[in-house]
Design a protein around this nucleic acid. Structure first.
Lengths: 144, 144
DNA sequence: TTTCTTGCAAACGTTTTGCAAGGTA
DNA sequence: TACCTTGCAAAACGTTTGCAAGAAA
């Protein structure tokens, strides 16, 4: 398997889109990092990208299945999709905002069964569990 | 058990908040109906409520546990919470936007176990499954 | 009467869009 | 060169806030 950036170039070319500096910047910001909000992408890009370009790039990447959105609280973040990382869900800590990825076949199967029981054809699903991670939970216990 | 509106009055009084026309309107819009966006609430209220009041009422109701938010796509909708309806999750149809409530103890238990395995203290969770409901899936099959 | 709540209007943050200039094939 | 993509600026939403007027306790 080629490098992620080559992979990106191939996907773009295969769909007739140009390979631009901006698209690679967004891609590399997401590579091997935690999911980011549009704003975080903007700040990390540090004047190299216009906001509008980020929105357009993210929209394109979503269409091409390069990234996907995950809900965190009532906002969303962007992460590289299952092509580049495995499909998983998250536990998100309300206190320190840590995001703990979980990857459970059992969960996937459960969702599939649930859909079937309801005569539903599942396309996508999101599972979000909010709470406290171990260290934040510990801090709370000590505080009380 | 008293009527839902009496129930609302009691909750408001117990927390030292006033019983106002506007709060009852929002409450009744949500009662026995599908989850609604802020905009849908505004339109259904038909000039009886200001947008700001809806936001404030929803925020208060959330604080008091009267309503909760659910994610649909990358937006949210408001629904009466588990006090007035049972705790459940949703299957949401991408085509006709129907929302099919599901109520699975099994799912709840599964999430609890998952959190425990990760030393995580769960507070809230959201499960959203997007896809096609039976009739929309049928339409698609016929079309192809 | 005192305190809480509302409506209005302005402000703010997020996302989208048109268009001319610049980059890619 | 011809087409695609970007940056900029303006517009369109969604949400929040201050404040004076109105309603509830």
């Amino acid at each position: 398997m080629s490098t992620p950036n080559t992979e990106l170039a191939i996907i773009l070319r295969n769909h007739g889109f140009s390979r631009t500096k901006q698209r690679h910047i967004v891609f590399n910001l997401l590579l091997n990092r935690e999911p980011m909000t549009i704003n975080e992408l903007y700040k990390h890009a540090d004047k190299q990208l216009d906001r509008a370009s980020i929105y357009r790039t993210v929209a394109l990447f979503e269409e091409l299945g390069i990234v996907s959105r995950i809900t965190i609280g009532w906002k969303y973040k962007i992460e590289l999709s299952d092509i580049f990382t495995e499909h998983h869900h998250h536990l998100s800590c309300r206190m320190c905002h840590a995001i703990i990825p979980i990857n459970k076949d059992e969960l996937e199967q459960f969702i599939a069964r649930l859909a079937k029981e309801n005569h539903f054809t599942p396309l996508e699903h999101q599972v979000e569990i909010q709470g406290y991670c171990q260290s934040c939970a510990d801090k709370q216990t000590v505080a009380n």
